[in-house]
Design a protein around this nucleic acid. Structure first.
Lengths: 313, 313
DNA sequence: AAGGATTTGTGCGCCATGAGAACAAATGAA
DNA sequence: TTCATTTGTTCTCATGGCGCACAAATCCTT
C-alpha cells in the first residue's frame, strides 16, 4: 500500500487502539475529548477502507473480530513507535547533548572562546564542541556549522546575536616607549617603528580616528604580519608599536607586557565593527545550540566586550 | 503524549519518511501525488509540533539533523507497523480461513447442512465450521454466531438471504398404504393412524390446504413426537401417516421407504414459510462468512429448494 | 561567468471534509 | 417497567489544509 493511501488511516488506527483499551466508543471519546459520533464514524471509515469488520458491536457490547485483533496488534506497535518518535524529539529538544560545531576567526577562537572551553564542557557534560578556524565567512549549511562568529553584516535568513564590538588599536611594550618616547598624536607615528598588517597594498597607511578627527599616516616598520598573535609578540619584544584588534591585546595589557598607545584613537580598516553569533533561523533550535550561544553571550557580557546592549541582527 | 495530541502528527511522520527516502520535498510530493508546497508545510508543521528541527535544508540540499535521524528511525517503525496492520486486514478480508459459527434448527442441520460439510471443508481447507443446534432464534451477537438459519420473519438490522421454502406434508410407507388403503381426501384421514407433532395442544388438529380449499381434520394415532426424524422412522416402520417438513422426507422418498400422501395438499402450522440465512449487517463481511453463505445458497439452488428467486429480506 | 532548471517557502482563496449537535433506536441494570 | 447510557445517523457549518501562483535561492551546464 502506497504511503498516501495509508496516510488518512493512521489517525483512525490510533483511535481503534483507544477504543479497544477504553472498551467503548463513548469511553474512548471521553478520553480523547471528542464525541461518540465522531469515534463511531472514524471506526466506520476505517472498516470501510480496510474492507474488514474490526469490531462487532451493539449498544453496550463491543468485541473485536479475529481480523480486528490482528489489526489492533499492529496498530499498537504503530502507536508505540509514534510515541517513541515524539519522546525522542522531546529529549533532543531539551537535552544539551551532542555535537555543536562552531566556526570563528582564529584570533577570536584562541583569545576568547578557547579559554572558556573547560567551563563550558563542565557545565554541559554531554556536550561535544568542535571548533573550526574559519577566517572566511562560513557557509553554515554546506559546512555543517551550527554557530558562526561573523564580523560585519550578518547574512540574511539567520539569527544573529551581537557578541562583541571589535576595534583596532595601538600597543607597545613599556621598554620600547621608555627608549623611544610615547607618541602624543598619530602624526608622530612616522618617527616610530610600526608593526602593521601587511596583508594587502595600503596596509601601511593607517587611518586613525578620534571623535570628529581623522588622520592618515604612512607608517614604516621592519616587521609586519597578518597574524595578530605574532605582531603582539613582536610588540612585547620591544620591536615597535603594533596595530591589534583590541580583544587580542587584553591579556598582555592585564599582564603589563603591553600598554595602550594613543588610547583615545582607533584605526579604521577591514577589522572593525560588530561580531555576531550567527545560527540557522529555525524556530525551535536544538537545546545544545541554544546553550552554547547563551553561554558565549554570557561570557561576552561578563568580560565586558560590550555588545549585550546592541540590538539583534 | 496523549493520543489525541499525537493523532494529527501521524500522517506527517509518515510523510517525513517519504521525504527522507525520496531525498527532497519535490520528489516526495511527486511520489505521493501532492505538491511541494504541501510537503513543505507538512514538514514545517511537524517541526513546530515537535519543537525540533528535523531537516536542515536549502534549495537543492537536504540533511537530517541528529534529532531528525532518531525521529525518522521511529517513524519508519510506525509506518511498517501500519502497513502490517493493513496487510493483515487485507489478508483477513480475502482469505477464507478461520472459524464460522452457524446456528440452525436440528432438522435442517442434519438433513441439509451436515451432509454438505465434506464438500465445504474440502473447498476451503483453512475453514473451521462450528454447527450449533438452535431451535430457538439465536442472538447472533451475544452467542458469537456468524450465520443463523431462521424460519419466518428475519430480524431487522441483519442481512437475510432466502434459503428455502418449508412446507409440512404427509408421508407413509408403501406397506402401510397397501394394507390400509391410500386416502384420496384429507377427510379420510380420520380412519387412519396419523403420527402428529404432539408439541402443544391442538397439534392433533390438522389444517390441510390446497389451492383455495381448506379442510380441518381431527386425527388420531398411537404415536406422536416433536422429533421429525423419529416420526419419519415410525412412518417408515409402517406405523401410520406422518406429518413432516418436506425437506426432512427427501432422502426417504428417494430411497422408496416413504411415499407422499395427498401430495397436492400441505398442512398449516408453526413450521412453514421461508427459511433465511441471516448474518450481521456489516458492509464488508469477512470472506469466510461470505464463502459459507454463498456455498449454502448454491446448495439450495442446486438441490432445488426453490428459494433463489425470492427477494432478499 | 551567466543563464536556466529546479528547488524550498509563502500568500491567498477556496472547498472538501470531518466534527458537533440533535435525535432515534437499542440495551442492560436497577 | 423505567431509566441511563450506548451506538449510529442526519444536517449544518466551520475550519484547516491544499492547490496555484510566484519569489528567492541554488546548483549545474554551457
Amino acid at each position: 500500500m502506497r504511503t498516501n493511501e495509508l496516510l488518512p488511516l493512521l489517525p483512525d488506527l490510533a483511535v481503534l487502539v483507544d477504543v479497544v483499551e477504553a472498551g467503548s466508543f463513548s469511553a474512548a471519546a471521553r478520553l480523547q475529548g471528542s464525541t461518540p459520533s465522531a469515534v463511531s464514524r472514524q471506526m466506520a471509515r476505517l472498516e470501510a477502507a480496510l474492507g474488514l469488520t474490526l469490531l462487532e458491536r451493539s449498544t453496550r457490547r463491543l468485541r473485536l473480530t479475529s481480523g480486528g485483533q490482528e489489526v489492533v496488534r499492529h496498530a499498537r506497535s504503530m502507536l508505540d513507535a509514534a510515541r517513541a518518535a515524539c519522546d525522542g524529539a522531546a529529549r533532543h529538544a531539551s537535552t544539551v547533548a551532542g555535537r555543536v560545531r562552531l566556526a570563528a576567526p582564529k584570533a577570536a577562537l584562541r583569545q576568547i572562546i578557547h579559554p572558556q572551553l573547560p567551563a563550558l564542557l563542565q557545565t554541559y557534560p554531554q556536550l561535544t564542541l568542535e571548533l573550526q578556524v574559519s577566517d572566511q565567512p562560513a557557509d553554515l549549511i554546506a559546512d555543517g556549522v551550527d554557530i558562526a562568529l561573523r564580523l560585519g553584516d550578518p547574512p540574511a535568513g539567520y539569527v544573529a546575536r551581537p557578541f562583541m564590538v571589535v576595534r583596532t588599536k595601538l600597543y607597545a611594550s613599556p621598554a620600547y616607549l621608555a627608549e623611544h618616547g610615547t607618541p602624543q598624536h598619530p602624526s608622530e607615528l612616522v618617527r616610530h617603528s610600526c608593526l602593521h598588517l601587511a596583508e594587502q597594498a595600503g596596509d601601511d597607511e593607517w587611518c586613525a580616528v578620534r571623535d570628529n578627527e581623522r588622520v592618515v599616516v604612512n607608517v614604516r616598520g621592519r616587521y609586519a604580519s597578518n597574524h595578530s598573535e605574532m605582531r603582539r609578540e613582536a610588540a612585547e619584544w620591544g620591536m615597535g608599536i603594533a596595530s591589534l584588534p583590541d580583544f587580542t591585546a587584553r591579556q598582555a595589557l592585564a599582564a603589563g607586557t603591553l600598554v595602550a598607545v594613543l588610547p583615545g584613537w582607533q584605526l579604521l580598516g577591514r577589522y572593525q565593527g560588530t561580531s555576531w553569533l550567527v545560527y540557522h533561523a529555525d524556530r525551535y533550535r536544538a537545546a545544545r545550540v541554544r546553550a552554547v550561544v547563551d553561554f558565549l553571550l554570557g561570557v561576552a557580557t561578563q568580560q565586558g566586550y560590550g555588545a549585550a546592549s546592541l540590538p539583534a541582527g
